[in-house]
């Protein structure tokens, strides 16, 4: 059952130098309990997609398209209408646990205010819920830690609080924006396990935004690859890792350091991310692509295919 349906999402930002086309014609669906990864390098527009769903884009953003949830287009919803959906139906986990929590407020209060507001709980009951959800994200001694301030927690513990905030109303969808990027590798694994367990218990749909392909392989079923604000490839995780079908995806996978690589060299994709000051008219990856042909500079490839969808005019067999 499709919960969330994003259609032809375009996000532009007006700046003094002109419009930046951050997200171009992105469409995807999210079903109940599905775990989808949205992968791309910095600036590819992945966080902006999540923020547009929450209605939290910066003021200079111009957004078009549709984000359908329960028959409502969230892009056209008023702030009051969105406030009925935020946290209750769709929650977001933010990237940096150091700055995502209010440093002047006890963590317990930052959790309990959510259920006080949305479920009309009394202060006492809301505190009990806060303890429960802190225990659910495995914060030891939750009852005592309720009255601690964010700076009294380690980075990993703070990220658990941020996750607890997203979970406390048992939302149908969680948008996790790089939930482990700011953390140590060992803590990363713990947090991803935790998310995985909770996701299974609550049958929540998760959109995992990341640039870490290792995290994707361990957690998700489906992957969407974003480049220059355009969808390059949509596929099952297994298929993507076994036989990536888009030149950009191939480049990404080659860039993951491999311990069996005897040369000891690191592989980078040559060139730099595209300038997004103009709406794309050709494949945005063409300037950095190994397999570029003349037509690539003239046509804007659309996503095509059945199980694996790809936006590339060349057949898979023709790629190097």
């Amino acid at each position: 059952m499709t919960l969330l349906s994003v259609r032809d999402l375009n996000i532009r930002f007006t700046t003094g130098d002109g419009d930046v086309h951050a997200v171009n014609n992105v469409s995807f669906d999210l079903s109940a309990g599905q775990k989808v990864a949205l992968v791309g390098e910095s600036g590819s527009g992945k966080s902006q997609i999540a923020l547009s769903i929450m209605g939290l884009l910066a003021k200079n953003a111009i957004v078009s398209g549709q984000v359908m949830f329960n028959g409502n287009n969230l892009l056209a919803a008023s702030n009051d209408e969105l406030n009925q959906i935020r946290a209750q139906k769709i929650a977001m986990i933010f990237q940096d646990p150091m700055s995502a929590l209010n440093p002047y407020m006890k963590v317990g209060r930052q959790l309990s205010e959510i259920v006080e507001l949305h479920e009309g709980l009394s202060r006492r009951d809301a505190r009990i819920r806060a303890i429960e959800v802190m225990e659910a994200v495995q914060i030891p001694d939750a009852k005592r830690r309720l009255d601690a301030y964010p700076h009294e927690f380690s980075g990993g513990m703070r990220q658990r609080i941020v996750i607890a905030m997203a979970l406390i109303c048992r939302p149908q969808i969680i948008l996790a924006d790089e939930p482990t990027t700011a953390l140590d590798v060992t803590v990363q694994a713990q947090i991803m396990h935790l998310l995985d367990d909770i996701q299974r218990d609550m049958d929540t749909a998760v959109l995992l935004i990341t640039h870490d392909l290792g995290v994707v392989a361990g957690f998700c079923e489906d992957v969407m690859v974003l480049y220059g604000g355009r969808m390059m490839e949509k596929s099952k995780v297994g298929a993507l890792f076994k036989s990536p079908s888009h030149p950009y995806t191939r480049g990404l996978l080659r860039a993951v350091p491999n311990i069996h690589d005897q040369t000891g060299q690191l592989h980078a994709i040559p060139g730099s991310p595209p300038n997004q000051m103009n709406a794309p008219t050709a494949c945005p990856f063409a300037p950095r692509c190994n397999d570029v042909i003349d037509t690539c500079w003239q046509t804007l490839p659309e996503l095509t295919g059945e199980d694996t969808q790809r936006a590339c005019i060349q057949p898979v067999e023709a790629l190097s």
């Binding site: 939290l56 935020r86 946290a87 700055s99 209010n102 440093p103 205010e113 959510i114």
Partner: peptide, 22 residues
């Protein structure tokens, strides 16, 4: 403009609460 205010908005808090409490 700080991230923790964005978090507060993501909680669905009304603007009044965001200003006074956060």
């Amino acid at each position: 403009n700080s991230p923790f205010i964005r978090t507060a908005r993501a909680k669905g808090l009304p603007e009044r609460t965001i200003i006074w409490r956060h």
